[in-house]
Design a protein around this nucleic acid. Sequence first.
DNA 1: TTAGTGACTGTAG
DNA 2: GCTACAGCCACTA
Length: 111
Amino acid sequence: MCNSQSESFFEKVYHTVRKIPFGYVTTYGEIAKLIGHPKSARMVGWALNKSEVILPSVPAHRVVNRNGLLSGKNHFANQNTMAELLESEGVKVVNNKVKNFKKYLWYPSKH
DNA sequence: TTAGTGACTGTAG
DNA sequence: GCTACAGCCACTA
């Protein structure tokens, strides 16, 4: 919202991710689309990688790829951290993948 | 300044 | 349905 025009790519990503409601997940592509870079989904993941250091309050575990796969889990302290965080919010994770992915999917652009 | 890197996605075969 | 390839852009060395 406010002063979004002066925000950097990073900050836009972080603000969008922080809007994801408890118990929901979204995709890199959706975030990229919302901040005006629909073809730069890779950048979103990269920004989230850095988010642990720059802004730890970003719920990066709620961001997965379009298949519902926890592609970023390897970048957490432990590879189980991402799945555990999601399950603690009521999101079922099986084989590093969100079960009923569409059920938990949240579209930032529609919110 | 330049080149390499990266937690992805869409399109074509 | 799956696989392979190209594009995208900010940051680091």
